[in-house]
Structure formats: C-alpha cells, structure tokens
Design a binder for these strands. Structure first.
Length: 378
RNA sequence: GCUGGGAUAGCGAAGUGGUCAAACGCAUCAGACUGUAAAUCUGCCGGCUUCGGCCUUCGUAGGUUCGACUCCUACUCCCAGCA
C-alpha cells in the first residue's frame, strides 16, 4: 500500500506527504506534465530547481516511442530521464478523448498512431503491463475519458471504466508479485473516477471506486472549474472516496483557480499541460492575471514579468528581453517562460500547503482570486 | 542611346475590361490553448462606420469606355541584353 500521511486536515482539505520509492511528495503539489518523458522546454535539473516534486508521463505516448521495453532496459522512467524523483504515468485513457482516430469497444481501444498510422491496441492489461515496464511510482488505471453533455455517453464511459477497473487491479497485482519476486521497487495504482458532470453518475462512480483495493484515486473527465458544477463534482467525489488515500485531479490546472478549488475540496496532486503549453505560446501567469508576452507593450518593459516571482526567469531577465526572444522565435524564450509558469503553479501549491498548515487558506485564496481574476466574490 | 521586361496594400506575390479594398504567403496587431497528434490554432490586417454600408487606392499625369489594377499616350524609376 502506498504510504500517505495527512499532516493536517480541515474539512475535505488537507496537507500531507505521499511516500514513493523515489522520494516524498509534500501535498498539495503540482506534478509537471512530461508526456513524452520530458517537461517540454525544461530540463529536469531546472524542474528540481523550481521546486517541482514529481512528473507525469503518458503511457500512450511512450508506447509509440521509445517503447516501454526500452525504458525498462534503461532502468525505468526515473533513471531513463535522470529525474530520479517521484513519477506518475497516465494510462492512455485520455487519448480516447483527445485523439480523433480512437475506436472504443467493450474491451479497450484501438488508436491509429499519429506518427505512422500503425494500429495501437490498448486495454487494461496492456496499459498495466506498459506502465509496469515504464516503471513510474504511481500508475493510473485504464479508464475512458469523456467530455460530453450526453448523459448516455457519459454513463457508458463510466460503466466501461468500472468494468475495466478489476482487470486493471488483477493485472497490476500479478505484475506486482512478479516485481516483488525479482526484488524490484513497488509501484502503485490509482483508480479513476468518472461520471462527467452528472451528480448521480459521479456519486455512483465514487461509491464504486471507494470499495476498490487501490492506493489512491484519479479524478477524471473534469476540465475546468469555471463552472460551479465542476467544483461541486470534485467536492462530491471526495466526500465519498476514502479520506486516507491520495487523490489526483487529472489534467486540471488550465486556470490557477483550479488548484485552489481542487485543494479546497480534498485533491492532493494536480497535473496539467497548460503551464508549459501556454508558456510556449506566450501566455505567462502573474499574480494580477495572465499576460501575453508578445504584446507590443512589453517591448520596452525593462523590469521582470513579475518582480515578486522567485523563478530563474524573473530573477534574471526583464520582460523586454523575453518579448524579444518571442518575436524572433528563439527557443530560450520558451524555456524561460515555461520555467516561469511551472514555478508559478508549483509555488501556488506550496502556498496552499502552507496556508492549510497555518489555517490561513481562505485568506490566501481570497487574496489570490481578487488579484488574479479581479473578482470580489469567491 | 537602343531593345525587351517590370512598377499592386509593411514586404513578397496573384489578378490582364465589370463578381477587386484586391487571392495567397510573410510580417504586424490581438485572442484562445483540459490526464499534450499542440513551440499550436483563430481572428484582424487602406480609412470611416449607427456594422448595413460609405469613402480613397494598384508608379505619375492624361485618355478610351456605361465601367480600368486590367486598353491607349506621355513621363519617372527599376531590371536584363545590346551598344
């Protein structure tokens, strides 16, 4: 069983520590998205320096290249990437939603490789085997991600996810036995809750998942907290799931508020591609909202993006330089901006964690929301 | 000096009598970007606008025509070849 200590809990919200074979994760924490075993534009040394505690890679992408066998040969994801810290893998379930050429059936899914058109078959067993070879500390069960208003579709995806979970667990346990015999480090399994934005389905999914012998939970198929329903779904889900196990809010963090709302309702870890993707495209986070560094007004701003930010970018470079790098499309610009945004979300989580321990979360959240979104009611 | 080719919006470049404020590309300006097919996508891109249109443009000046970026004349400048 994955060791998870809760240091302080207030309602659903808590600060804790997840103990993985590759190190501890102090929660709440933002996990860097390293889809193809790399956080885009940032080295792992830089990730460590900016305070990132863990990274998350994607099983689908690593099956395509370089293949799970190769990562196993390299000694597993942590050694392969020279990250050496805690790692997660996503199951590939999200690609059923994000890839157009995904054909889903009762057993699993067939993808058409976006690289060469090859057929890629995935199901619970295949995902588990690949994840064990890749060797991240924490695996996601193979689920069906969905983003739909059609209740029938959402329910279908949920039923499939429920049907697949015992297969995930069985295969995971089989592989765990093999690993144990071989003297390899333990790896852990999170089940993924589905149900979209339908309260009854969410409840049903959470209740089902709560009874399952897994190490933690991923909360799936929620994509933004801009709508109150989403926040409510997180709350409702975590009220049902066992308190003593860690919860990961899958893929949510395109807006900083997602982290506050997620933490408030009991999520311990987060991952999202938004900070790095948006950085690459010139959108940078500041305490006063998002800015576009490519805007003409930054041409002559000889002060940092955010003078109060402690990231490598803000401590060393001014906005005018960053603006220039974007205008001439120099890769260093993307690196600096990615470091900045990644540090921004990591730091938010650090602040959230501290505020939970200090009992000042509400003040922190209120202050952030007012400054970032210029909202009075939060 | 002669011969031939050319001059179109910030740049490059289509258009060769009406459907042209003018394709397309780049640049500019702005917007978006959920478990990353994403260093990507979208919009704008002569001026004004009550968003329906109105006005001024295709080297310069004239002309032909109901109508010209498109045809004619002269001029200016570029490029190539010949002297």
């Amino acid at each position: 069983m994955l060791k998870f200590d809760i240091e302080k809990q207030t309602g659903l919200m808590r600060a804790g520590v997840i103990h993985t074979p590759h190190g501890d994760i102090k929660t709440p924490a933002f996990v860097g998205a390293a889809t193809r075993a790399s956080v885009k534009a940032i080295t792992n040394a830089e990730m460590r320096e900016l305070g990132s505690q863990a990274i998350l890679a994607n099983t689908y992408h690593l099956i395509l290249a370089p293949g799970p066998e190769l990562i196993e040969q390299a000694g597993g994801l942590a050694d392969f990437t020279a990250w050496h810290g805690p790692t997660f893998t996503d199951s590939g379930g999200f690609q059923m939603l994000s890839l157009k050429d995904a054909k889903i059936d009762h057993d699993g899914v067939t993808f058409k490789s976006h690289i060469n058109g090859d057929k890629i078959r995935m199901n619970a067993e295949i995902s588990m085997q690949a994840q064990w070879q890749i060797g991240a500390d924490i695996h996601m069960a193979f689920d069906q991600a969905i983003d739909s208003k059609d209740k029938n579709e959402v329910e279908k995806a949920m039923r499939r996810t429920h049907d697949w979970l015992p297969r995930n667990i069985k295969e995971h346990n089989r592989l765990a036995e093999l690993a144990k015999t071989a003297g390899k480090p333990e790896q852990y399994l999170y089940a993924v809750v589905q149900g979209g934005l339908f309260e009854d389905l969410r409840k049903e999914s959470a209740e089902f998942m709560a009874t399952q012998p897994v190490d933690g939970y991923g909360i799936g198929s929620l994509y933004t907290t801009e709508t109150p329903e989403t926040a409510n779904m997180i709350k409702l889900t975590n009220e049902i799931l066992p308190q003593d196990r860690p919860k990961h809010l899958l893929g949510m963090g395109s807006e900083p508020r997602d982290l506050f709302i997620g933490a408030m309702y009991g999520c311990d870890t987060f991952d999202c591609v938004a900070p790095t993707r948006q950085a690459r495209n010139g959108a940078l986070y500041t305490p006063h909202g998002r800015i576009n560094i490519k805007n003409a007004k930054y041409r002559t701003q000889f002060s940092p993006i955010d003078p109060d930010c402690d990231c490598y970018c803000c401590k060393n470079y001014n906005a005018a330089y960053l603006h220039h790098l974007y205008k001439v499309d120099e890769i260093t610009g993307k690196t600096l901006a990615s470091i900045h945004n990644e540090r921004f979300v990591v730091r938010i989580c650090e602040q959230i964690r501290q505020s939970i321990l200090d009992g000042t979360f509400e003040a922190l959240m209120h202050d952030f929301m007012v400054k970032y979104y210029h909202e009075q009611n939060v």
